[in-house]
Design a protein around this nucleic acid. Sequence first.
DNA 1: GATATGTTTCCGATATATGGGACGCGTCCG
DNA 2: CGGACGCGTCCCATATATCGGAAACATATC
Lengths: 265, 265
Amino acid sequence: MNGMTMADSDEKQEQGVKGTQTLMRALDIMDEVIDGPIRAADLARKLGMSKTTAHRLVQALRSRNYLSVTREGFALGPKLLQLGVLATEQIDYVRVARPFMELLSDRTGFCVFVGKREGEYSRHLDRVTGTQRLRVATAPGDRRPIAETGLGKALLLDEDEAGWERLYIEARGGKPSRAQIDAYLKDMREHKARGTVLHDSELGDGVRSIAVPIRDAKGNICIAISIASAAHYLTDALRPGLAEQVVRAAEQISGAVGYSGPRRA
Amino acid sequence: MNGMTMADSDEKQEQGVKGTQTLMRALDIMDEVIDGPIRAADLARKLGMSKTTAHRLVQALRSRNYLSVTREGFALGPKLLQLGVLATEQIDYVRVARPFMELLSDRTGFCVFVGKREGEYSRHLDRVTGTQRLRVATAPGDRRPIAETGLGKALLLDEDEAGWERLYIEARGGKPSRAQIDAYLKDMREHKARGTVLHDSELGDGVRSIAVPIRDAKGNICIAISIASAAHYLTDALRPGLAEQVVRAAEQISGAVGYSGPRRA
DNA sequence: GATATGTTTCCGATATATGGGACGCGTCCG
DNA sequence: CGGACGCGTCCCATATATCGGAAACATATC
């Protein structure tokens, strides 16, 4: 159809590893099949390979159960179910997140944290200390009531309001006033709508943070990332721009652990 | 170092598709990585390929996020999380099961059914009519109380006893006697221990069935398969051999939808 | 039954993957 | 401290595994 004939003119810059054309093409096929069942002939057209090649690769993938045959063409195969489940067990969120945390720290200069939920607590898993003189003391391994940290709030964004209220009361130990609870809920609603948590420590130590949830392949919040510093540095003026960067980092990490958007079209 | 040199003795008979050595080797690597993080050099040894080749393939897979690098070697990558989830949505249990149902029907001559659970009911999804004159009337789409069919019982094997009792009572509409309930529970315990459901219809129509659950990649029972016929054909003498065959079919289907055994070693 | 679209097989030329070997690096050990 | 070892990385000549054309076959469309 198009001038695909010979003129692949410039190289694809994403070739990456040389000597793997076959593999790469096969994986290209997998990527196409992600979008739903597709016919071998269509694959050949879309990927600019001969019908023969498409057919050969597709058969190979099917013989290994990476693809399955359906009435409407080839679909993702059962082997992927197995691999998916096993990958879940092998994935190390911290290791995946590391490089992105470092990048974020480099670009902002702030301390970066990731943490996960442990029941009513949030557990800090990893930290990248920024370039700033003033450091936030929280160390990996620390556990704090989930409702009272920025990271924790981010982990709670999918929770319902009853959950927020319950966890807030628990975190408060004593019994907060109705007004306090309502203020907290209002706060959380805003965070949720924005997808970003802007947090000022209630301990009066002037620590501020910006936290964003990270979602796994199933769309659930699995960990959260945050940057934190003294309010003196993390000023209101800077917040929007920084929030933007944290969100971007969170999106990249989400992608790297298999998240593929709110809902596949 | 070891006698790996040349003596890979017999070829793999499962080469299947020709002209895909690279792909096949890459997928062999994936299969090795399934067993846990592994070093590139070990892959080369285990799979009888040169270090160079192993390295090249591994890099290619990593560049596509099918593998990730960890301290202890290469592990399953985030892309598999994404593919796993999407495969779940694309998998069509009925289509996967079809060929196995036909095989089972051919070999036994009986009617074969598959069905899934719908709350307190079991829904018959597909049927392969056997060669026998006498046919079981249940058609795809039919819904029966889950506790009163063989297929349904197989779907319940993972349920706890309280669940069994509740569903049995519901199925009975009226209130069964304590003795009836206990008999039912005893029955279910036996089915569960055996992994196979031997069912005689309580309607007095002389219909018998043998049902076995099918498990998905997570190990959960997702559908069940059964053969059914008149007790006149499906005699006590035949039962053990037939049960064996149904179990084998169920195992194959389970494998085809990603189940990888009770628990990976 | 004729046309169109997709699937499968076969085969020779050549682009492509292969493995030997070398290098740098970190670690273990005497 | 120096040497041996294991691992990841790179280069390159070579063998061969891979590619695509063509055509038989299968199925859908009209």
